[in-house]
Design a protein around this nucleic acid. Structure first.
Lengths: 337, 337
DNA sequence: TTGTAGGCGTTATCAA
DNA sequence: TTGATAACGCCTACAA
């Protein structure tokens, strides 16, 4: 383990000078600096994180808690999201601390509190926002920097990047209505998940715009998994007057619906239209390929890290940045191609 | 920010005593301990990570570098793997540091070296092993604890948990041969990826056992993505004498092949058999559902963390644990049901 | 331009 | 059983 002392000793300089030379202060002679830098590199010196952190009172670490219900889950959305967070963090010299906890669980609370109290992280990335999200309230009160993917309230005051899924779903329903579908079902999520609020509103907006009356029996609650989409779709298809189109709150839900349709002997894209939301790679490889609203998961994650780091650095704390992106409707075979 | 000093002051005790009471030393009076513990909890005390780390010379952090090629990727295998790592770490009081880098890239090397040099992590979880993996060599030389998912060499000397994919593929090929398929193709991965060595060997073993001659033209190199599986399968199906079955090195490859088959007007499970490996949830929801070899991703990740923490703690350093699990063949419709 | 000294919050050693 | 004291490695006023 090589540390400042070693480099200093070798160069017959003081620890102070070495430290400042390395940190790019302008009160060291250029000649000294080059010597120091060269020696440090050659000796393989890297500052001890713990020491620097203790002294500077910041960790250069951001935290992210994966919303993993019941341990198991396999949503490639999050694989891509984490890849974006990781790349973003590396690019800015930050590290990414990851944990997992079921939403709203005691474990979740513990993780956030522990990370805050022991100052392991400088800020948080939040995703899968809930209505009245305690994390938002808590972090805001504690003064811990955070940015969210989506927002906890219609008129949220925290910094976020959001994809306008409301407009997206309205557009999607318009697309279906344009193809002549009138009985359009929607499989959503628990009403306390923020995205459900937005997406179901977009669905209703789309119906209204198309002059289709809202039918309560065509709206079911899923859980954003393939399984959830599957069983909800089965129930819909068992209705006396089943829907001719099913819209899922995300791609996984729609993929579950595809399976249900097939088991009922229906061919998606011909006998029934099915569409999702997210635009993960998986949606391009289903049979038939899935119509979906694509959101830039990777890029959003990267941007979130940038926003967060800016806030940690204390920039732009006057105004909370609210970024709204538009999803892109990708029409594939599952709605007729 | 409440620290030892505050608790000590409040209780009119020394910092030392408080520290030891909290850490469970047995040289503090029981009465004192209860007072301390209560006060600490009430005041919301948690040790500063950086300080503890600096003093104890260990971080209680494990590192994992996600093999993300070109930034983007969406493999739910890794979502599940990370969930397992996260849960395992939490259960043992460790934190999980995650970064992303393309395999063999300079960035990858940098991350490992930086984490080692600045002692941010106590050990590493390795996955997606490569033949002659530099990480294994480097970490072993530096004496940094690590455990691997899979192994870098046929006779690897490092600790690992492996799923016997060789036996698995042999079993899979036997299954296909038993159904009368003779022209069985294999879409694998780059030959420097360790799993390719194992899986392709299992494939050949299976052919041999079934008395099917090995046909070079039926083996293609994919890249473990849906896209890769898709284009490889297209090439296979364009052969003068196309295969009647396609085995993918993982589920994503097989899913790409499903798509290719469909575009060629073939119905999987009837006109052609297709099978994968991993047993992710996605494989259960394809059309038709995919025959696959299931490996316990989540549990393996958890176990890896346990193994690693044991090694960090210095236990069992005499012998490297080598755990071998058996995959489970799940027969679904894509091979005839 | 360089060096000295003190402290960030904990834990460990030793003495009381 | 408890307390004073000295590190852990780094950063930064301040002095030289």
């Amino acid at each position: 383990m090589v540390q400042l002392r070693d480099v200093a000793r070798r160069l017959k300089l003081s620890i102070t000078t070495v430290s400042r030379a390395l940190d790019g202060y302008d009160d060291v002679a250029e000649a000294t600096r080059t010597r120091v830098v060269r020696a440090a590199r050659q000796m393989g010196y890297t500052p001890r994180r713990a020491a620097r952190q203790l002294r500077r009172q910041r960790a250069d670490v951001i935290g992210y808690v994966l919303p993993a219900s019941e341990g198991h889950f396999a949503d490639s959305f999050f694989a891509e999201f984490i890849a974006g967070l990781g790349d973003g963090a590396v690019a800015l010299g930050f590290d990414l601390l990851v944990s997992t906890a079921a939403p709203k669980s005691a474990a979740e609370r513990q993780i956030y509190c522990r990370w805050i109290q022991s100052s392991v992280v400088d800020g948080f990335i939040l995703s899968r926002m809930r209505v009245g999200d305690w994390r938002v309230i808590h972090l805001a009160r504690e003064g811990i920097p955070f940015v969210a993917h989506g927002r906890a309230q219609p008129r949220a005051m925290h910094p976020y990047i959001e994809v306008d899924s409301r407009a997206g779903f309205a557009q999607l329903v318009a697309h279906l209505a344009g193809r002549g579908f009138r009985r359009i079902a929607y499989v959503g999520a628990s009403p306390d998940i923020a995205l459900q609020v937005e997406r179901s509103a977009g669905y209703r907006e789309g119906l209204e715009a198309a002059g289709i009356p809202f039918d309560d029996s065509l709206v079911l609650e899923g859980d954003l998994t393939r399984q959830g989409g599957y069983s909800a779709a089965l129930r819909l298809l068992a209705l006396p007057e089943p829907p001719t189109a099913i819209v899922g709150a995300n791609d996984l839900t729609a993929i579950g619906a595809l399976r249900a349709a097939r088991e009922k002997g229906l061919t998606a894209g011909r006998d029934i239209a099915i569409a999702g939301y997210d635009g993960t790679e998986e949606s391009a490889h289903t049979q038939p390929p899935l119509t979906t609203l694509q959101q830039p998961i990777y890029e959003t994650a990267r941007s979130l890290v940038h926003m967060l780091v800016a806030r940690i650095g204390g920039e732009g704390s006057l105004e909370d940045p609210h970024v709204v992106l538009q999803p892109r409707l990708i029409i594939r075979e599952s709605t007729g191609g």
